[in-house]
Amino acid sequence: MEPDHLKSAWEMLKLQNTQHHINGEQIFAMLDEQENSPVFSTLKILANTVLLFVIMLCCQGG
């Protein structure tokens, strides 16, 4: 198999492996699911608490 054959085989392999199609709706669902996951929500609450704390400190300092 020469490099040219290798490249054409690679193109064929790529074509063969693209059967597992995913649509936009599924991608949106994936992102939404992650954003609503308990870990993500906890992180969001934690970030908001830290932000609030920093704002309070700044206000007291001023």
Partner: peptide
Amino acid sequence: KKHFVKIIEEHQGIINNLCAIYYKNIEDL
């Protein structure tokens, strides 16, 4: 998010190909 989803839709061939090369089990893929 819409822009991101559009990019992924257009380039999903790369992701699918890599997953299929590294994982033969459909669930893992």
